[in-house]
Design a protein around this nucleic acid. Structure first.
Lengths: 343, 343
DNA sequence: AAACAGTAGTAAAACGGTTTACCAAATACG
DNA sequence: CGTATTTGGTAAACCGTTTTACTACTGTTT
């Protein structure tokens, strides 16, 4: 038979004082009580190993301090790093992020929406591009709840956003490859294009136009997210005359790399590869990947900053912060000569 | 001015029926009500966009369905994969894991203990070897709460555990390297040895003894977790006559690999490397790493299985499940000839 | 026709805290 | 010395659900 849960009443009884007093004292609002009384309360709490019930406490004082963070896939190092950076920024401020990794589970989204709609979280960070739309729609009625998005889509919400300069990033990557002499560049992109990818792609294209070149349709490869997708794409790419490859993220880039390798091609000998994200294992790859690094830590910090502002001043006008990325040149890219493939 | 939260009363009012009826109907226990009434309730819910308050609901019916999962580091692919596999096993059964990544934050542990002690979770999975001891101690009084550990330590608790055959694994790795002709094998281990590592190490040693060899102290390298630790270790290892390296996990192995590479050494040419864990990016590394694969999915499944059993039958005797690992031979190891380094 | 069983519904008591409003005794003030 | 204020404390309302224990009514048996 289980012992009944120890409640505040038990503490009050043990300390020989009222429930009110116990509550106030344990919440640091007990200035008015004598230090002797306080001592007895703390003593009783310790002896009974009392912890206030989370639900009861949440029910009355609406002050919970947890913020929900929705990410698409916990296994993608970019998102797990982002989750960590949000955590690191939030905890010192007294907020505790709760990670929801959607992972393609329908139930997951439902569960999280329910959780959120029922008032568990004080705010919501949606770091799941694409999935956002659906979620934002479902939650749109609750628009008095602070949200921060990392979504470029033109959603008709006035939520705060932390974004990266997608177009500029795309352009910079393309410029870099073009400056190395690559003219035939393959793009490996996902089947479903989210808004940020469209923008990034626009940037790529602009760079080509500035060089008097154009992006040819036959060098665009649509595949799945994740390394498997990259492996598949590699098989197609070697049938073309491409000399460089831009992957939608490092995860995919790794797959392309592996795919090329097992087809007997070398990097950067036969192909230059550029990734995107700079997840944390990147610098340990051999050869290391040239990639457009997202400022993950900064993104996390800004997200938390906006979130806290918004919680404190619910009616302040919405903000949109755009952060710059940084090209990190690794060993996966190299100059090629005018004529063709080999330097 | 914010609109007041819509409560069950509003729904009842709108539907012209009692609060009880609304509650029962919305929880699928309203068989006895006429379908017309049900319709009205659902209608009202929809129109008012009503979601039951999480706290109120939690307060009364103690049936929340969330289980806490504590992992040491969300960035380590092994643990993020484990978290995912727990999620995949739990959700179909109607339980929702909540991930707490400790990440070395003292506040994190405190927060989570408070959360847990205050009854938020129905059960607790401690997948944080080493940290467990402290936590288990603090929570020991609440020993009526279902816990599943993945800790080899001889804690005096009767909690369920899901473990891997550490000693056997260690032995198998060593046997494999010995069978390839390696006699001088370096070990890269963390500074702080948890119980599982001690056991694994025992296995290594046994294999050496069976071969009439012994593990020499000067080939044991203690370093930090993570790839950085591996890089550091590599610098020391090349000063020795080791021909093979066993790393405590794949994360570290990658670092060793990178370190050797930047010191002009090749793998498996100069050194064979074996890792542990088999995190999900492993097969995309070049060369792919020989590693002792943990059955991550199965671990997740067993954890959830035990947890649910324990929730349903709190008094059943505790179980301890030991799972086998599997050596996955990659391209990072090779045979060497009797004499010395080169085949 | 009396007893019985459904049927469709409700009022009120929990759940475990926090907070508001109030009080009695002790002390300070003029 | 009578009144005002401070000190140390409490009783009770409330938060939004779920659940228990009724009730009134309508058929159905025997």
């Amino acid at each position: 038979m289980k012992a009944n849960k120890t409640t505040i009443k038990d503490v009050a009884l043990k300390a020989g004082i009222s429930v009110t007093a116990v509550s106030l004292i344990l919440n640091g609002k007990g200035e008015r009580f004598s230090s002797e009384t306080k001592r007895k309360v703390h003593q009783a709490q310790l002896e009974l190993d009392y912890y206030p019930d989370y639900y009861a406490r949440g029910l009355v004082g609406q002050r919970n301090n947890s913020i929900g963070v929705v990410i698409p896939n916990i296994k993608n190092p970019f998102f797990s790093s982002l989750a960590l950076s949000i955590e690191q920024a939030a905890i010192p401020k007294g907020y505790f992020p709760q990670i929801f990794s959607v992972n393609g589970f329908k139930e997951n989204i439902d569960y999280f929406i329910e959780q959120f709609a029922s008032g568990t979280q004080k705010g919501l960070v949606l770091a799941a591009p694409g999935a956002s739309k659906e979620i934002v729609d479902k939650l749109s009625i609750h628009n008095d709840i602070p949200m921060v998005l990392t979504d470029q889509a033109d959603l008709n919400t006035d939520d705060d956003r932390v974004l990266i300069a997608e177009e500029k990033s795309g352009k910079e990557i393309a410029h870099y490859l073009l400056s190395l002499g690559h003219k035939r560049v393959a793009f490996v992109i996902p089947r479903k294009l989210t808004m940020n990818l469209v923008k990034r792609f626009t940037g790529y294209t602009e760079a080509f136009i500035e060089y008097g070149l154009e992006v040819s349709e036959d060098l665009i490869f649509r595949t799945d997210f994740g390394p498997e997708g990259g492996v598949k794409a590699a098989k197609e790419i070697i049938k073309t005359d491409a000399t460089a490859i831009i992957a939608i993220n490092d995860d995919v880039a790794m797959g392309v790399f592996k795919g090329l390798h097992s087809l007997g091609k070398s990097v950067p000998g036969d192909y230059s590869i550029v990734g995107f994200d700079d997840f944390n294992l990147n610098k340990y790859l051999i050869p290391s990947l040239t990639t457009m690094a997202q400022p993950i830590e900064l993104i996390g910090q800004k997200i938390v900053e906006l979130m806290i502002e918004r919680i404190q001043y619910p009616n302040r006008p919405s903000k949109r912060i755009v952060l710059d990325t940084k090209l990190k040149i690794g060993d996966s890219t190299r100059q090629i000569n005018e004529g063709g493939r080999v330097l």
